[in-house]
Design a binder for these strands. Structure first.
Lengths: 140, 140
DNA sequence: GTTTATGCAAATTCTTTGCAATACT
DNA sequence: AGTATTGCAAAGAATTTGCATAAAC
């Protein structure tokens, strides 16, 4: 995503577009998969981890990012839906136990679950663990 | 579960039944929900966290426990299936954002997903986040 | 007596906060 | 000027390891 698009996104989510925020959002937009703090730190360099952390926290509060946990920890992914309501664009993720990447299965929406009485779900996190196509080919 | 049952379970999973291991497994069996390291530490007291950690690691390697990650971190749950093959008894979990508990939805199996070519799944982790019936009633 | 398991302390890693400096309006 | 943002350093939390002791076989 280019800068203007990102700034428009920020506007939608009521986030002031500072230089750092644009850098973090750009880093997220450049990979089509959720990134961890340390992956972002590796990519960014110019921003201290506390800054990245606070930026992600802000993004999360303004529903610009989804947060998901896999066996390696927490990862952040730009919301694809434009709206700031409950994140309703969520898809299944695949965590490769060999290369450690967590990939989006964009085309596989999280199945609707019929919950027992009294439960009220706000978000969902569905991760499959296994071996990704790349590692399958190139040997474990 | 009583001690004999646990020892039988250990045998099935090829784990030597030491006193500590029985204590940890018993603690897990007493709650019908996945517990974190710190929840186990609270319940156990008599075993150092490194001991609990190593015990859980062993259980994991021998497929006696499932591991799952929610927004509070990693939790461990006794496998219900007797077999040691790929964990095939997995159900959906519900993490309450209010009380922080992660509950088993025993009756809701993880839906089968038809993966794109090349992906090979070994396990799955499906967590719904929201408010549990208890917190719903007693006010957030 | 050799191997295995345990406890304690400490190293690592990851996440989060305090605070002073900087930039923005 | 006054508020918001940032960087640096350090606090806190959670996980993991080293090693010496103790238990099991």
């Amino acid at each position: 995503m280019n800068e203007e698009q990102l700034i428009a996104l920020f506007e939608q989510h009521d986030i002031k577009p500072t230089a750092n925020r644009i850098i973090v959002a750009k880093a997220l937009s450049e990979e089509c998969r959720p990134l961890s703090m340390s992956e972002l730190e590796d990519r960014i360099g110019s921003i201290d981890k506390s800054g990245i952390f606070r930026t992600l926290t802000l993004f999360k509060e303004h529903h610009l990012v989804h947060v998901l946990e896999d066996s390696e920890g927490t990862r952040y992914e730009l919301c694809h839906s434009g709206n700031h309501a409950e994140d309703n664009d969520m898809h299944v993720h695949f965590h490769c136990e060999h290369c450690g990447l967590t990939l989006c299965l964009e085309d596989i929406p999280i199945p609707d679950i019929c919950l027992p009485d009294g439960y009220q779900a706000r978000s969902a996190n569905f991760i499959l663990n296994g071996i990704c196509p790349h590692c399958q080919k190139h040997g474990e």
